[in-house]
Design a protein around this nucleic acid. Structure first.
Lengths: 230, 230
DNA sequence: CAAGAAGTGATTGTTGACAATAATAGGGGG
DNA sequence: CCCCCTATTATTGTCAACAATCACTTCTTG
């Protein structure tokens, strides 16, 4: 469950709308550039327009939707440029995460993460893609929590959402983009007290993800240019 | 001037309110924990309450005010814990900034920054503390812009605001907390192509700032405990 | 006299109506 | 036949009144 800061109380319906859209985006039932009309969401969730706008603002803040003035809310579609910026940032931030966890976090806390990876694998095996994608993202956020830096966790949480949105738009279901094997590898390095190894594993993991998403975006671009010629 | 993303158009009055409060906080004319009542701000800026609430939400998003449900908006007062978290993050992010600027940015772009530092020194010499603090913060943001990573710039901008708020609450006007000498040092290292040196200068600069703010916060705490005994 | 409870005033949160803007469809001129 | 201009419709942005909540004063009671 995604936590948000106190900014006017949050009704349970608003919370539901947020997570619904989040899940729908991650399961790419809501493809990028889909328009979300306020009135439509009002009817679906029985909320006042004001509340809908509040949730949309939160989604925009987390980078999941783009809010165009006088034109409405659209599911975000990160450009390749933004994609590489995200991963560059994540490299810097998750390096700090690993550093702090390796230095400070007790090994007992890592058990929780191992459970998560187990569930990740289960979801993958069952073909439950939305759950898998969500857990795959949560792994990085939960790891960040162990760093003890709340600010870092919050920023990384948003960044992971955006990254996941990027990945969710990839249409190759056979390819696993953010492997639980990698996650398990990072965990075992941390358990063994091998900080340098953990740093390397994380760096490679992120670099792999970045490359994969960049490649598929390139493919998408080629496809478009191919259509242009016809 | 602080740029914000498109999220419903921004009237010039709303913009003015944002920058006014920003400046007032930085010049510590608005000390932490000061309450900002909506109606008061409405009268001052001739805005509707709705607009005021929108700006307050933005300020909260940037970490300058705390928004307590049903209790109103208060100028934020970062705890020592948050303070150290901020600087830890800035160390990681600004290392990335320096790295990118050293690798990519053309030296000609650095001229602009040199001008800024000049103005910084002027403001300091004139005793214009608000302007100095603002320029001192802007230096880091403008440097981040040269990194070419818009996401990084945006995150760092908020972080710098929060840091500056922390620093602004320090009551020793004689002490310069974020020296332009340091800024100049970083610039010259970058100009000379000395990436390692620039990284070190930046790291030391931030570490100095962190230490100073931590020290004064400790002092404040002592003062409070002293009052408790009376 | 102190502590707690109820009432009052001030402040925030929400709802619905109105205004402004952008997307769409239809018609006239080139 | 295509393009541009205008009218209509749909959607977003803003405003003002209403409801809920909180802070404070006053009154009662042990």
């Amino acid at each position: 469950m995604v936590k948000r800061k106190a900014a006017g109380q949050i009704s349970s319906d608003e919370d539901r709308m947020y997570t619904d859209i989040y899940d729908a985006v991650m399961g790419h039932r809501l493809p990028p550039q889909t328009k979300l009309t306020e009135l439509g969401l009002c009817e679906i969730y029985g909320l006042a327009r004001h509340s809908v706008r509040k949730v949309l603002a939160q989604l925009a803040e987390d980078g999941l939707v783009d809010l165009l003035p006088n034109r409405g809310a659209y599911i975000a579609s990160p450009s390749p440029q933004e994609g590489s910026e995200m991963f560059e940032l994540r490299q810097a931030l998750e390096r700090l995460v690993i550093h702090n966890v390796a230095e400070q976090a007790p090994a007992t806390k890592l058990a929780h993460l191992k459970d998560m990876v187990r569930h990740e694998r289960e979801a993958w095996n069952k073909g439950d893609r939305p759950t898998w994608i969500r857990l795959s993202a949560d792994f990085h956020v939960e790891l960040a929590k162990l760093s003890g830096n709340a600010l870092l966790t919050d920023i990384l949480r948003r960044l992971v959402s955006r990254t996941t949105l990027l990945i969710a738009s990839i249409e190759s279901p056979g390819q696993n983009v953010c492997s639980f094997d990698d996650h398990l590898d990072i965990l075992s390095k941390l358990e063994a007290g091998d900080k340098t190894g953990a740093l390397k594993s994380m760096a490679r993991h992120l670099s792999d993800c970045a490359q994969r998403s960049a490649k598929t975006e390139e493919k998408r671009f080629d496809l478009r240019s191919a259509l242009m010629q016809s």
